[in-house]
Design a binder for these strands. Sequence first.
DNA 1: GCGTGACCTTAGTTTTTCTAACCCAGATTT
DNA 2: AAATCTGGGTTAGAAAAACTAAGGTCACGC
Lengths: 296, 296
Amino acid sequence: MPVSPPRPKGPPLNALRAFEAAARLGGIALAADELCVTPGAISQHIKTLEQWAGVKLFERRAHGVELTKAGRELAPDFTAAFDQMGLALHALRRARPQPAITIAALPCVAQLWLPRHLTAFRLAVPAVRLSVVALETPPHLKRELFDCSLFIRDPEETATGIVLARDEIFPVCAPAIAARLKNPADLSGEVLLHDAVWSGDWPLWAEAAGLASQGFSEGPRYSLYGLALEEAKSGAGVLMGHAGLVDAALARGELVRPFAESVATGKALVLDMPSRPAPSSQAARFCEFLVQNGAG
Amino acid sequence: MPVSPPRPKGPPLNALRAFEAAARLGGIALAADELCVTPGAISQHIKTLEQWAGVKLFERRAHGVELTKAGRELAPDFTAAFDQMGLALHALRRARPQPAITIAALPCVAQLWLPRHLTAFRLAVPAVRLSVVALETPPHLKRELFDCSLFIRDPEETATGIVLARDEIFPVCAPAIAARLKNPADLSGEVLLHDAVWSGDWPLWAEAAGLASQGFSEGPRYSLYGLALEEAKSGAGVLMGHAGLVDAALARGELVRPFAESVATGKALVLDMPSRPAPSSQAARFCEFLVQNGAG
DNA sequence: GCGTGACCTTAGTTTTTCTAACCCAGATTT
DNA sequence: AAATCTGGGTTAGAAAAACTAAGGTCACGC
């Protein structure tokens, strides 16, 4: 009858969060990414939790971790608990004196697509406070405190996402370069500008345009699409343009389309929001505004 | 359009727990007690949370804190979330390789009432692992990871508690002292032994026995009932006995009841368990065992 | 067979959290 | 009206936790 430790210590909440993320996403690296820490931190959290609970939660394999039976059975409970917590947190954020709308967006969307719409919305609703966070990967809206997200992605992968515009691509370049491009085959002599994450754009288009995709992966890569766009404007080469991201530059004449060929990538500009958007909130109004006006 | 901080930091979970406890219990000191930290820590947590959320949650008054409107509206959401988390944690604990039954009990119950029953249960279920934690105040079974609790308390104050035995009190003392006690009035010349937390016992009994409660608060106080019991056995004075706690000593003849008068205190030995006890678990079996055999 | 990808481990640093000791204001007593 | 008591706030420093960075391991694919 060990009248043991004075009082069993409370559970390590951060470790639970780490476990939940790792279990849901199926990997330590992915969880680390979601929680914005290094994989080592997640690994340690999980070890702490396993020790605290006295249960092995993950099977460590060389090529990734796998949930044990216990882990597989327990994970949904924790997911449910953190979902509930997320609801409470959203409520908390909404209670602020002057609630701001926080938008998560792909950097290029934030830079090239959003500004117009933010300006228009501010005209319609003057007192609103908006802030934008640029992220490479879409956040979990139930967990992270964003009011909505705007990403170019496969529309299938979200349950609640709304397609604002299908993604289409076509080459764009400065007028001076366009002057010497009569047809797609002329591209062989030109510098092709690439976005680091959309490296498949040029081969995809080339194939659709009836060219061998051979050689379409060569050329400078930019980690930000906005950067590549600036380079294109200043005549550094030909960029694969995404409709929604280049139309402002096209309208201003800074860039032109040398060819008519346009290819759908299968992705789309997707607006997503937490499954239970605060009704009648400014965030809901903003999303509605985008749906009405965002296609343009 | 501030493309501000890289990624808004996740919510401080420990601060949320502190807030939830303080809101539910209605005070910082109480929350500190539940979470086993100093009030200063809770206070800081709440400040951190208020800062993170940008919302005042508590109104600081000189004589205790009070929830603000926002706090009052938000608290139930967090309570729900932590309840859910508690369920998940219980499931986690149950998943251990050899699950142990952890019992929370009042120190005197752990010392004077439980041992017999633990022994009996071990006979019935040999392989079981039991551990006992002595606590002054009943734990929140939804939060703290006990499988059941055994406290002498008002049965009304629990929703799920099961009364094992009504609490009755009567004087007990060593046989040598009993020899000179013919009727209650003889107590006036005796040393009365008191338990620190049950200081009302003697006056209550005295009144029921038709004596003026005058003078029944005098005498040595012991912070542990078990200590007072030992003193009574060795002839230090007359103790107010609680039926369930002294019957073993009575059976062994170490103590005797000089008078027949017995008074119900309105409290009872209450067995409580988490609202959703694991069906078919060892913990459930133990509780059932106590209900069957615990009255004796 | 060698590179690669995904993860683990460890040591050391940074950050958070906690405590201890003190101060305050309003109630409650004296 | 003064003293006390109660429930909290504040602060510096100590303790504990979390995080990062760097190096290591194992399996897979080319």
